[in-house]
Design a protein around this nucleic acid. Sequence first.
DNA 1: TGTTTTCTGTTTTTT
DNA 2: ACAGAAAACA
Length: 751
Amino acid sequence: MFEGLNREQRVAVETLKGPLIVVAGPGSGKTRVMTHRISHLIACGIAPGSILAITFTNKAADEMLRRTLLLLDHPEPPEGVPGFLEASGFGISAESPVIRTFHSFCSRILRRDLYRIEPYSGDFSIYDTTDQTQLHNEVLASLELDRTTFPARAGLSTISNWKNWMISPDEAQEKATTFRDRELVRIFRSYQQELERRNALDFDDLLLLMLRLLREHPDVLTRYRARFQHLMIDEFQDTNRPQYLIARLLSVEHRNICITGDPDQSIYSWRGANPDNFRRFQEDFPEYKTVHLNRNYRSTPQIISVASRLTSDHLGERRLYTENPDGEDVKVVEVSDERAEARKIASSVANWSAEGTPLSEIAILYRINALSRAIEEELVRNHYPYAVIGGTGFYERKEIKDILAYLRAARFPRDEVALRRIVNVPPRGIGKISFERLVDSARDRGMDLGEAIRDKEVVSAVRGKARKGLTDLVKVLDDLARLEDRPLPEQVEAAIEASGYVNHLERSEPESWQERTRNLEELVTAAAETEEILQAAATDDDDIDPLIVFLERISLVTDVSFFEERDARVSMMTLHAAKGLEFNRVVIVGVEETLIPHSRHIEGGGLDEERRLLYVGITRARHEAVLTYTTWRRRFQEREPRLPSSFLNELEGEGICFQRAGSSLGIISVEDQRSGLTERLEDPFWEDDEMQVGVWIHHDLLGRGIISATSGRGTSKRISVRFEACGEKQLVVAYAPLKVISPPDEEWEPC
DNA sequence: TGTTTTCTGTTTTTT
DNA sequence: ACAGAAAACA
């Protein structure tokens, strides 16, 4: 049971009673400790079902469950069936520990008990970001506020912050001083009311309502306290206030709570994560014990020593060390632009692959999703399979969301977001005006939209094409609703069929309709998979609607493991998404000022978190870490000069080597590179010609004009020209009869 | 007049 | 690639 564990790890595994803090650096065997601890609990006679382990992602949950079952000599869970099984199953068996994220754990409980809180019920919808944005904008319309002054992104992030810090609309109102703040509070208030009315929960609500449930219903609290005698929380540095309070409520009596985390890897404060929870924990559970896991088993000494330069010296006490053999230096590579960066990465992949590193052991990490594009293109060109993790995920694709919206609208008439989404997709003549008319008429009668579209009088308020479209839609939805008891894949297929969606795709997206249709087929496959899992867990006492399970799985389980096949592929993801993962070789791209640190966080408290983000990135690597930065990068249409990240200065020292692409492996310090930067402003890839914005030209046919924009290079370079005689035209420089002229005098007269 | 198509400007991180 | 705005269409 304890073989292969070091002394500290063993202490953590053996301490089963009472509060325990495990401070675990990257690669220190934290998951090992957690899985051993769970199996040790079970070996000591604790009922598996009374163990609740909270992880940060569903992927981590699956991994932990899989490894725990292995330790327990369980038959291996079927390949490719994620621990999601557990989500629907926790009512079922006391034979397996419950390992989930906070969100899916809460959702599971709320499915059963949310009816206790007015006016909700257990078949609530979960609103994802898209749904939230739509609702936000509906709220704006009803409050007669302007979309540009109150963008959804900003508004929702403010609302989410309030919720994470458990500030009610009333409290927010008291603190609001400016006009804008007061308007935001109004938006918050009606956003929340509208969610309630629709029996819908956003991600924050999953936590907040769980907390309310436990606080307001002592019998429920007692039940779950009795049920979960042992709590474990992973990535504790990234828990927010409601999450901590839920954990405290569940464990404050038996006090068997083990938290693991690493303040140096706290990278989610923007989502309300509060490292201060460590301090609160120490106050609330003063008899706690602490274990420090400082020995790293993952990385080379070079990687550890370089990465450690980014962490604050916690009194020199918590320093991470390793006894692994030496490896290569961490490399910092300068390249001229994002295409050169992509080529450099592709050639690294080629070399590593030739040396025998499997593609699945290579990761490319970046600060923002937008950086993946250039690299993807290069990998495609070189025929390297890759998987972009996160980003626009499968379930965020338009066609997928549309079909799911059909199912939602058919079966959950209160869920207006879904109905609004598909009311005119495919186009059936119900435009903005007709729809507004419909909504008004429904509101006048105090009806839900779902009722309204079936109401004769309301429908007669709309006329012509729109009325026909509406009756067609109602028929489609009613037909779908009738399939309630059919198997899930059949329902999904029916939704695709009845909506005429494939036809619509073919007409409206001649470029991509085939791929999108394939995606829809994948959706049917996913439905079949869910159906299968539910069949396997047929002992379910809760008898939950398969469609609800399917939708929930989709909104909460966005990990790779759920959908992607496990072929050998290069992984590409953001630094945030890489948390908790490890790879033999890691490339971090775009290590540039304004990217990491991101421009929004260069000043103020956010800077430390950016530094930790880079720390997390570097420590993902076992054998080799490469950091790249460019001197030029294309952003929208413009190419802009770039500076290396200021963090690179902090990394200087033993175990790291700076090199310029194309140059021999000479060691060049950051200062050398900085001073060399100005002379390299003429980038070899930048063909500087005369056709620049602001230059006057003469066209043989169109006459005089001034260049207002340029794009592309070489023979594909295009310019926009505002002509005196005929307005703005687009021209291809290589083919247009143009010559540069000196500016007309009148334009240059000083005013 | 109302609907559909085309064009333009926009991307921090995510359960 | 996507959303919102302007233009084109019925």
